[in-house]
């Protein structure tokens, strides 16, 4: 273990935060969908992957990175809204397993569609020039793009929080998550709210996929492993809790990152060990069911 200095450890933790930022975006969307709609979205990884491929397609049309960053989540969010309206909506009130099975099947359809359109091999995705290189962050040099990922995720979390806490629509979403019936009694069409929530959740997944593409390229299967991790994060943070998703996402990122420094072969297993420990001590997760933002 010689050679592991404090600076190296700190850098590795920072790398973990960048990784965790991606997980946070994934888990936020999953947690939102579960907390509000009780939909366990098995297609969340596929939306993540499609986010990266929509960016690939937009780049092919001549768009630059920034246009992709803005439009890929929006386009995928619209796709998510279409899926909610056409496929998920008829299943509300039928129990948790119906949308679960549907989204599970949907993920295969989406992956296959991308294979047909873009091929089965991965596609590399260039980091934009201004974000190439490393910056001195005091403890050593750190890739600028990873800092950028942390920044974008932080901005997305802040934006989502402001939207939920400070806008009338956010108020309806928070109330609807806890008691959809009283929201209807007060004259509000909850169905329309669910549509928007689905759009936000899938849009966040697409943002995560698009941000991950320059780190690992885009491939039809890129969402599979992230989906499993996002489930872990959602469970550790507490189903339906956004604060939990943020903390657990960063924690899981750091755990993976440190594990790959000390025992690379244990990196994947460490996530599930963490989940097991949390579930034994606190079965509902960090902030399970305490509420969306509380």
């Amino acid at each position: 273990m010689e050679g592991i200095t404090l600076d190296l450890l700190a850098l590795q933790i920072f790398t973990g935060l960048a990784l965790g930022a991606i997980y946070v975006l994934m888990a936020l969307g999953m947690s939102l969908l579960f907390g509000m709609l009780t939909v366990v979205n098995f297609a969340h990884g596929a939306f993540y992957m499609v986010g990266a491929y929509v960016a690939v397609a937009l780049l092919g049309l001549g768009a630059n990175f920034w246009v992709c960053l803005f439009f890929a989540p929006i386009l995928v969010g619209l796709l998510g809204m279409l899926v909610e309206r056409v496929l998920i909506r008829p299943l509300y009130g039928r129990g948790i397993d119906y949308p679960l099975l549907l989204t599970f099947g949907l993920s295969y359809v989406m992956i296959e569609a991308v294979r047909i359109l873009f091929g089965t091999t991965g596609i590399s995705f260039d980091t934009p020039d201004v974000l190439v290189g490393a910056a001195d962050i005091g403890i050593g040099y750190f890739p600028i793009y990873r800092l950028f990922v942390i920044g974008v995720a932080a901005a997305a979390v802040l934006g989502l929080w402001l939207f939920l806490e400070r806008t009338p629509y956010g108020l309806i979403i928070r109330a609807g998550a806890r008691d959809p019936q009283i929201v209807r009694i007060l004259g509000i069409d909850v169905g329309r709210v669910w549509l928007v929530v689905f759009g936000i959740g899938t849009g966040l997944a697409a943002l995560a996929g698009m941000l991950a593409a320059p780190l690992q390229g885009a491939s039809p299967e890129m969402g599979d492993s992230v989906l499993a991790i996002a489930f872990v994060v959602t469970v550790v943070g507490g189903m339906g809790s956004l604060l939990g998703a943020v903390l657990a996402g960063l924690l899981v990122g750091v755990v993976v990152s440190l594990a790959s420094l000390f025992a690379p072969e244990m990196a994947q297993v460490s996530i599930f060990a963490l989940m097991a420990v949390v579930l034994i001590i606190r079965p509902q997760g960090f902030f399970g069911r305490a509420g969306l933002m509380s």
């Binding site: 108020l171 109330a175 806890r178 019936q181 009694i185 007060l186 004259g187 509000i188 933002m293």
Partner: peptide, 30 residues
């Protein structure tokens, strides 16, 4: 509700996690 029918259910259904003001705001939105 929008046609003018108000309803206060038996269990009151005060939304947990929301403030008094936010509960009132909810009644005002539609």
């Amino acid at each position: 509700n929008r046609l003018g029918l108000g309803y206060v259910p038996e269990e009151r259904r005060i939304v947990s996690g929301l403030t008094v003001r936010e509960n009132l705001r909810l009644g005002l939105l539609a």
